[in-house]
Design a protein around this nucleic acid. Structure first.
Length: 590
RNA sequence: GCAUCCGUAGCUCAAUUGGAUAGAGCAUUUGACUUCGGAUCAAAGGGUUGGGGGUUCAAAUCCCUCCGGAUGCACCA
């Protein structure tokens, strides 16, 4: 167990003896500004507040019951009632030595695993994956990696858009205007063309729209020809998905598309009707407000002309068809029955926040028992903008296809690598460029707080300085080169010596290494990979300070050299694992 | 119109239960080293956290209000 956790447990026990009724779950120990110490707790101030106690007195009483002499050199009460802890350097060194022996890497697997269904990526059949998919896919994958690393069982599920009204138009196009040659060379582009052409015709001609609807009805009724064509469209799309996911190194446990839930949709609606949760209105069936919330907070009401009117969650259209609310409800039901998760997490565009608010509300009313044990979470994210501040498009104004984007990233990275390391063989430069280019795109997407929009910039994400993937990869490669040069790695692994933290830069680096686990927990707790990005960037910065001030291979004595090599190795391992957790590979040389 | 999210340095962004003097990178200026990888590092300037009010020992964070932006508002997903 890491030192801060030991302190935290002891502090919680001390608080319990002083305030037996207190909820100590909020009594946390967190890293703090180095001038105050290594760790800090500010929990006593809020505990004192609600009890109208003097916070400094409470801190003093708690401190009297707290024995952390084995871990800390001093505990201070500061300011309004902060507790500041300073680790003994020996404790710091011992923690690093245990890591050097491979006993841990500054994080613990969770003591309270939670089963999480992670729903992300969700591309559509017959459409190209575009730049927008990088967000859901990248954030979702980083979250699944983080949760797994911490020991939580994860079921990642790609809820592919393989059903819906668009197939009426696609089928009509396929039967009437399909270009076989184009389909062979670029199936996704051809299917997209079919959809766009027919869609435009339908907008202009109601008769054409009726034709498309007729194809859809046939498909829904199980017409063998339409089913076969639909399956062919899915198969062709799957080839594209597989290619992209393979490049991005993203894996799913499940890929149960919308069509998987078709057989359950009628039963879902019947059940909602039978329970009195849904009712018919204007020929459609919807779930309406239950009046328990004030109108402003009620997701089923909307204001029009100064009046609150119903804004139901429709589960059946007036033509008898179902929509995505119905599918999502059936999906929740299936996931509950199949995996009994504690959480279902949807990594989906923030624009759908309203939909999820309704979905979660209907779920709570539909399955009140399950709602007590299963938390539904919408992990939303903002848009990617061009440097004009408008949604990111190609120069001609079209959608940026994900495959093209990845190609360009690799190409740009290749040019830089060739410029800087032209002496490496081309195959190696290609491989470096692949890792750097893809890493740059992923990292740039994970770095900003996910809820805000961000501006896409090749120059910034591929820059070798600043908070970028290339910088972190370079930091890693630089450490690795020390070992290449010294051939000291095997010796280090065989006989890890004592770690001596004498220089301030060594201490600072060591402290930062210890915070890796806290960072991972924060990522998993708030579904925010950017915490890990910033942690790694800071780690690289701390390493630089160490590297500038503390000669490693030229250290003054063998013991110092061994100790510093161990610090290098631990830093490299955390960088590598951290990047891996973000879905980013590393290279030994660049 | 109503709702949601957002507004932080010239630009792009951070800020982990409300915590101590709001931090990085870019850009700008200055400096270091015939380099354990210069694809480097160090330093400086730059802020009334959109405005105003409130709660609190403590507010970028919570509440109210105004301004500005994005998004969403039954039978597309």
């Amino acid at each position: 167990m890491l030192p801060h956790q030991q302190i935290e447990l002891k502090l919680q026990a001390a608080v319990r003896t002083v305030l037996p009724d207190a909820d100590v779950a909020a009594v946390l120990v967190r890293p703090c500004d180095a001038k105050f110490g290594d760790y800090q707790s500010n929990a006593l101030m809020s505990l004192a507040k609600v009890r109208r106690l003097n916070p400094r007195q409470l801190a003093a009483d708690t401190l009297a019951r707290l024995d952390v002499a084995d871990l800390c050199s001093a505990v201070e009460i500061a300011g309004a009632g902060f507790l500041n802890f300073r680790l003994k350097p020996a404790v710091l060194a011992q923690t690093l030595e245990a890591a050097a022996r491979g006993e841990h890497l500054f994080f613990d697997r969770t003591a309270a695993p939670r089963t999480v269904v992670l729903d992300f990526s969700s591309p559509n059949v017959a459409k190209p994956m575009h730049v927008g998919h990088i967000r859901s896919t990248g954030i979702g994958d980083a979250l699944q990696r983080t949760l797994r690393l911490l020991g939580h069982p994860v079921i990642s599920d790609n809820h592919i858009g393989d059903w819906g009204t668009q197939f009426g138009k696609l089928l009509l196009g396929w039967k009437q205007i399909l270009n076989r040659e184009a389909l062979r060379s670029d199936p996704i582009a051809e299917m997209e063309r079919l959809y766009q052409a027919i869609n435009a015709e339908c907008d202009a001609s109601p008769a054409r729209l009726e034709e498309a609807k007729a194809e859809l009805v046939k498909l829904q009724a199980g017409d063998p020809e339409n089913i076969a064509l639909w399956q062919e469209m899915i198969r062709l799309s799957q080839v594209q998905f597989d290619t992209i996911y393979s490049r991005l190194n993203v894996k799913f446990d499940q890929a149960l598309g919308e069509s998987f839930y078709n057989p359950q949709l009628a039963a879902v609606v019947a059940d909602l009707l039978a329970r009195g949760l849904a009712r018919e209105s204007e020929g459609a069936v919807g779930v309406f407000s239950d009046g328990t919330l004030p109108p402003r907070e009620d997701p089923f009401l909307v204001s029009r002309d100064g009046e609150w009117i119903p804004d139901p969650a429709l589960v059946r259209k007036s033509d008898g068809g179902f929509n995505y609310m119905t599918t999502d409800l059936a999906t929740v039901d299936y996931r509950l029955k199949t995996w009994a998760p504690q959480e279902i997490v949807y990594v989906v565009d923030d624009r759908q926040a309203g939909h999820f608010k309704k979905l979660f509300d209907v779920f709570a009313r539909w399955k009140p028992e399950a709602a007590k044990t299963t938390k539904l979470v919408h992990v939303g994210f903002g848009k990617i903008l061009g440097d004009d501040g408008k949604p990111f498009k190609t120069r001609s104004g079209g959608t940026v296809k994900l495959g093209d984007l990845l190609n360009e990233a690799e190409e740009r990275a290749f040019q830089t690598v060739s410029e800087k390391s032209g002496d490496l063989p081309e195959a190696q430069r290609r491989e470096i460029a692949r890792v750097v280019g893809l890493g740059a795109v992923k990292y740039a997407d994970l770095l900003p707080n996910r809820q805000s929009d961000y501006i896409f910039s090749w120059d910034k994400m591929l820059a070798l300085q600043g908070n970028t993937a290339p910088y972190l990869l370079y930091a890693y490669a630089r450490i690795r080169s020390i070992f290449r040069k010294s051939e000291a790695e095997s010796a280090l692994r065989q006989a890890p010596g004592a770690i001596v933290l004498a220089h301030p830069a060594e201490l600072a680096l060591a402290r930062h290494l210890l915070n890796f686990g806290l960072t991972l927990e924060a990522v998993a707790g708030e579904y925010r990979p950017n915490f890990l990005c910033n942690y790694l960037f800071e780690l690289a910065g701390q390493f630089t300070g160490f590297y500038e001030n503390c000669p490693v291979l030229k250290a003054e004595d063998p013991a110092t050299r061994t100790s510093r090599l161990a610090l290098c190795d631990l830093t490299a391992r955390v960088l590598k694992l951290g990047l891996e957790t973000l879905g980013i590979e590393t290279v030994e040389q660049m």
